[in-house]
Write a protein that binds this DNA or RNA. Structure first.
Lengths: 108, 108
DNA sequence: ATTTATTAATTACTTTATGTAACTTAGTTT
DNA sequence: AAACTAAGTTACATAAAGTAATTAATAAAT
């Protein structure tokens, strides 16, 4: 009995959004271009992990890293077209959370 | 300068789907009721982690665990209404993956 | 000219999560 | 009785994430 194997593309996508912080980074960048420290303080991620995530996302073509040769140098992160195409996923999670997730003060 | 803090409900939802295996378990249960070993072999998760995930999902009211008093006992897992309400999220990920994720053999 | 500050990281170390494989419990077939 | 199956659990190993100090490059302050 052969198992109906899961589509590798779907699996890749799932492992992307199942990686801690990835969805929140994308959520933040959906609001517009941000600098490293801005992302860090807005979502509360450590520098180490943010650095890792941004590299991953850049390698996957989801985030664009731009060096602005001001003094001192400014590094801007933004979503590519592929990155922006994930907006519906994030919005669905947002909608679902408002309908189904209990807030901190709500009982049962 | 106060950071616009992220909605706690949204954060909860994000941390739910950002947990490894959670989305794949839900994906599998969207196909219908399954037993422990069926889920295990269909998505390739270890017994230990599947056990953890099912407990979490049950506590959050996303999965229902039903003991069928056959001999030997059968334990069936299925989605609750809340669980089924996550279908759009999963389907969006599925759609996105087909459009944007490169398969194994595809170059660049 | 040296000290101090800032940004975008990196490094070393700790804690938490996940993976692996053997074991358990209860009932079942040989 | 020995072996099998389902649904886990346990002990141990590896990987991922968290924390805090450090670095490199440049600027501003003393």
């Amino acid at each position: 009995m052969t198992q109906p194997t899961i589509c590798p593309k779907f699996e890749k996508a799932i492992s992307l959004i199942s990686q801690k912080w990835t969805a929140l980074v994308i959520y933040q960048l959906l609001l517009g271009t941000h600098r490293f420290n801005e992302i860090q303080s807005s979502i509360g991620i450590s520098g180490k992990v943010l650095s890792d995530r941004l590299k991953d996302l850049e390698n996957q073509g989801i985030v664009k890293r731009e060096v602005i040769p001001e003094t001192p140098v400014i590094i801007e992160y933004s979503l590519t077209k592929k990155g922006r195409s994930m907006e519906p996923i994030i919005r669905d999670i947002e909608k679902w959370s408002q309908l189904w997730v209990k807030g901190e003060t709500e009982l049962s």
